[in-house]
Design a protein around this nucleic acid. Structure first.
Lengths: 235, 235
DNA sequence: ACAAAAGTGTTGTTCCTACACCCATGA
DNA sequence: TCATGGGTGTAGGAACAACACTTTTGT
């Protein structure tokens, strides 16, 4: 079957940059391409947009098809449309990104992908197309975003300790944060609820907290800036 | 001439949201459509992407063709791809936005546009397609952005007074700002150079300043947050 | 002299930063 | 009792917020 138009049209694809938080590392989900071009190379999961689906749906569909990862909140990153970014011809790609808890998202390679795996950001293999550039943009955006919005709460168990939360910020931002100041600041925001205490650890048990979404939304109204100043640890 | 593909493809367009700063108002540039659909309705300038041009180039070309406005720094806003956003079929649109000095950008309607004009934000006519939604997104982004980056300097004459700069922020953000605190804060940033003084005004002449781009770039490295706190004027 | 807008002093308060110290638990 | 990580006190300084006042020009 063929489709004919009066004027030429670029092909439209979506790509997904899925960041995953491992214990101590920020990783990203890649697939090994099972088709030309760039057969055998690592690339971002993604593919062509169908006529009857929204862009975001397309991204989620391709993500699940190629990696088995689903139930993710993705956000539009940027649209890449340089004329010769794809050797097959003019292809414009809308990129989406997300940050997920790596443990909760098992991966299964399938369909067009020979393989799928998490790679540590900063130790990426050579990527297909302009995907290295897309990665750069995504990483910058993630780091910028985490300062102005407490995404990241989704990455932790429902109940978490302040140290876990701090580590999350440290990993994503790639810096060390002063414990005292981190705690003071995040608690003053008043978006966390203390619930109970840890048990069975070989040290003083920590308080567990829960993210209070209602209070967080009130918070956003007033403009949220996270910005931990005392960034280099001293404790 | 016709173009045939194995799979169907959405059409790809670009749209431009050009904000213009008038003396006391924030305006936006619209065209009156000269073609179906929505013939005669006001809409954002924009149109189809050619195969041999980047997305940004397409946006700039359409902008100039339809409104005569050129030499603008545009920035990608968002890509709108809802399935039924265009009655002609599946059309995905990459939106770009910019903030310009209205005086320096004379408009001339032409080509597909019957007319082009500046409208005050907040007093917009009914718009074609999903352009009202696009406007909302753009306005939010502009306001968010102006807090974290001193765009806006481009809107003023090379030499400007602090009061002019303050008014710019007040108009874009739609708030009143305390004079004393605004001055203290913007000067402490050390991105302005005092040059000379105003002349011929019927009051104490103001100092004129020039934006120092070098220092500004150093500034960005460290993370810039503008955020005037004492927002409600008291002076 | 007066209107108009520019520009400055200052004060109380909050927030930031940097350290040092104590606490509770399991092994 | 020791190692381990959890949690707190606090002091000095910087930044914020709010208000009132002085200065310089043209008319």
């Amino acid at each position: 079957m063929a489709y004919t138009y009066e004027y030429p049209r670029p092909a439209l694809t979506v790509d997904c940059i899925i960041f995953g938080l491992d214990k101590k590392e920020l990783k990203v989900l890649l697939i090994r391409r099972g088709l030309e071009p760039f057969l055998g190379k690592w690339a971002l999961p993604g593919g062509f947009v169908n006529m009857a689906e929204d862009l975001e749906s397309a991204a989620l569909r391709e993500l699940e098809e190629e990696t088995g990862v689903k139930d993710v909140f993705i956000e539009q990153l940027f649209t890449f449309g340089a004329v010769k970014r794809d050797p097959r011809g003019r292809v414009v790609s809308v990129a989406y990104y997300a940050l997920v808890n790596l443990d909760e998202h098992p991966i299964h390679a399938s369909s067009d992908a020979e393989d799928a795996a998490w790679f540590e950001v900063g130790e990426l293999p050579e990527l297909a197309f302009d995907h290295e550039k897309i990665m750069d943009v995504a990483l910058k955006r993630l780091r910028g975003k985490v300062i102005y919005q407490p995404i990241g709460f989704e990455l932790l168990p429902t109940k978490f300790t302040l140290t876990q939360l701090q580590q999350l910020y440290e990993i994503v931002l790639g810096v060390e944060i002063n414990k005292r100041n981190f705690r003071t600041k995040i608690l003053k925001m008043n978006i966390l609820e203390q619930v109970e205490r840890q048990q069975g650890v070989a040290h003083r048990p920590a308080y567990l907290y829960r993210f209070n979404e209602t209070k967080y939304n009130e918070f956003l109204e007033k403009g949220f800036v996270f910005e931990i100043g005392g960034i280099i640890k001293s404790n």
